[in-house]
Simulated scan of single mutants.
Amino acid sequence: MENVTVEVEYCNKCGYLNKYEELLKYIKDKHPNINIQGREGRRASFEVVVNGSLVHSKLQTLAYPEYDDLCDIISESKNGEVPKRICKQQPITSCSIS
């Protein structure tokens, strides 16, 4: 089994620290021995990197990662696979067009 590192860059000015903490708890519940690092970053960012591979970018999708799919990517990485796909995203619910 491989060691897996998950890095999350989030925009604290946008209030994404709470979303990072929610994601951290979710991942730790499923993968308690995983190494997760979070850091404040670019405006509007919520970028997730697994073992050096970008698997989710809020800057590109305008959405958050789908947590179960992200945990599947982590499981695959624990089995030695290099992440080759982008994580599914949560539905965007905070946007309205009038």
Rank of each mutant, 00 (worst) to 15 (best):
D29E: 15
E7K: 13
E2H: 05
I73H: 05
N3Q: 13
P91W: 09
C71I: 10
N12R: 12
I97C: 12
S57M: 12
N12C: 06
V49Q: 01
L54E: 14
I34M: 07
V50Q: 00
K28D: 05
Y67G: 00
Q60M: 11
I34T: 06
V6C: 09
N33E: 15
Q37V: 13
N51F: 00
N12G: 08
R42V: 08
L17A: 06
K58G: 02
K88D: 15
E81G: 00
S77V: 08
R42I: 08
G38H: 09
Q60W: 00
S77G: 10
N35H: 11
V55C: 04
V50N: 01
P83I: 12
Y20I: 06
L54P: 01
D69I: 06
E7W: 01
N3V: 02
S45E: 13
N51M: 03
G38T: 12
E81K: 15
V48Q: 03
G80S: 12
P32M: 08
Y16P: 01
N12F: 04
N18V: 09
I86M: 15
K28A: 09
T5F: 00
I74P: 07
K78F: 15
Y20G: 06
Y10Q: 06
E47S: 05
E76N: 14
L59A: 03
I73Q: 06
C14N: 07
K88Q: 14
C11P: 04
Q37K: 14
Q37H: 10
N79V: 01
T5Q: 03
D68F: 07
S53V: 14
L62I: 02
I34G: 04
N12H: 07
E2T: 10
P65S: 03
F46M: 08
K58L: 07
T93W: 06
E47W: 00
Y20P: 08
D29N: 15
C95G: 01
I27Y: 05
Q89M: 10
K13W: 05
S77Y: 03
G52M: 11
C11Y: 03
Y16R: 02
M1E: 05
Y67R: 07
N51P: 04
L23N: 05
E40R: 09
Y10W: 02
E22S: 14
R39A: 07
L70W: 05
R42S: 14
Q60T: 08
L62K: 12
L17K: 12
K19P: 00
T61W: 02
N12I: 13
Y10E: 02
K13P: 00
K78H: 11
K84H: 13
Y67S: 04
T61K: 11
G52C: 10
L62H: 07
D69G: 05
Y10M: 03
Q89R: 11
G80Q: 13
N12Q: 12
C11K: 04
V48P: 02
G15W: 11
R85G: 06
D72Y: 08
C11T: 04
N3G: 01
Y26K: 13
A63E: 06
Y20H: 03
V50L: 03
Y16K: 02
K28M: 14
